[in-house]
Amino acid sequence: MSIFQIVMFAIIAAILVITIKSERPEIAMLISLAAGVSILIFVISKISTVISVFNQLTSRTNIDMIYLNNILKIIGIAYITEFGTQICKDVGEGNLASKVELAGKIFILIEAIPIILALLNVVVSIMP
């Protein structure tokens, strides 16, 4: 499995979307959604290897694991938010896309609060 098959898969999906877009735009949109989902499902299995290497690195250099979990959560939220935003933009719903993006930013901010607090504590402790 390599990038070639992914690109071929996307081209086939695009051709199918075009053939059906004129008569049945809703089913065309569902085809592009299904193709996007299957590519994402395939890519997620590759991400797990990156995450395990990331875990080993942080455990060896005894950085707090708490922050790593937060970072992973933020990446996950960004991943899904971008997925939803693109789907809404494809259909032409710019309004929905911006709302989803706003919600994603808020959730990421909530996840990032512990890291910000830790940073402030360090800064305060350094201050004379």
Binding site: L33, I44, S48, L72, G76, I77, I80
Partner: peptide
Amino acid sequence: MVSNLFNAVKTMFQL
């Protein structure tokens, strides 16, 4: 399919 993707993301990123 979408629910499969979301479950995969949940387990992957502990969300």
